[in-house]
């Protein structure tokens, strides 16, 4: 049995990340390390800065201060100081982003196969048969029947669209996946299926993931570690079950006690 080695370099090291909207704080002084194979959950209520933080990490927003150091193939690099081509390359190779709304992450006018194949073609795949085989394989892994490969996402249910978005993102074997409320807007039973799928993929591919959600049940099942945000700041972080079972900060205690027990 192979053991997950405890590596000396974090995959992502975030240092004092701050984003202001004028005089308002989007997120402030956020620092954390993410280690290979770890899933980090970020929770907090609407407006707590969790989505701003995710956007800053993923390069969709430019933070005002701080560093986001990613352990690239060529060693740790501050993503914020990369050139735009480098950052864009990163976002289609080592990184992936799963949007809450699949419409933001899919090309709705392109077939399922084309959606999955795009990242392959973006990194130079030029053999139609191979691209199609890999797309078929990935549709299978996200439980979409192979015969739907030539259908457009508009013909898919919400849950299928979200699974297609995941396949499209993971086909190039990224090392870090950002997810913004990946189970939001889905029926409870569909959510469960997606959670199971994500857990399996994270385990099999050794993925690291940062998941923003307001759903504590989702993070309990998916995240190894948890970060709680309030008013743009991290008020508490630690092992997921420790933060949920023995919250230390007044806000976390309130948050945890507000959840209906199922």
């Amino acid at each position: 049995m192979k053991m997950e080695p405890i590596t000396a370099t974090p995959l992502l090291r975030v240092d004092n990340l701050t984003k202001r909207y004028g005089s308002r704080i989007g997120c402030a002084d956020v620092s954390f390390d993410l280690w290979p194979g770890e899933v980090l959950g970020i929770v907090g209520e609407s407006g707590s800065g969790k989505s701003t933080l995710l956007s800053c990490l993923a390069g969709h927003l430019t933070p005002d201060e701080g560093q986001v150091i990613f352990d690239t193939a060529g060693g740790p690099r501050d993503v914020l100081r990369m050139t735009e081509p480098e950052r864009r390359r990163l976002s289609r190779t080592d990184w992936a982003f799963v949007h809450q709304n699949p419409r933001d992450g899919l090309r709705m006018g392109v077939t399922a196969g084309g959606n999955v194949g795009e990242r392959l073609m973006a990194v130079g795949a030029r053999h139609y048969g191979d691209i199609r085989d890999r797309a078929t394989d990935w549709l299978g892994r996200v439980e979409i029947a192979a015969e739907r490969i030539d259908d457009r996402p508009t013909a898919f249910s919400g849950g299928m669209q979200q699974r297609l978005q995941i396949a499209r993102n993971l086909v190039t074997g990224p090392r870090l996946v950002f997810m913004d409320e990946p189970t939001g807007g889905l029926d409870v039973s569909v959510q469960a299926r997606l959670l199971d799928l994500l857990r399996g993929l994270v385990r099999e591919m050794g993925l690291s993931a940062i998941i923003v959600t307001h759903d504590l049940a989702v993070v309990r099942l998916l995240a190894d570690r948890l970060m709680v945000m309030k008013s743009g700041r991290v008020v508490e972080q630690g092992l997921t079950d420790q933060v949920l079972d023995d919250p230390q900060h007044p806000y976390t205690q309130l948050l945890v006690s507000s959840v209906l027990q199922v």
């Binding site: 289609r92 084309g114 973006a122 030029r126």
Partner: peptide, 11 residues
């Protein structure tokens, strides 16, 4: 970044 052009041909 021309991967998209091949998506058109793929389609």
């Amino acid at each position: 970044e021309y991967g998209l052009m091949h998506v058109k041909l793929y389609e």
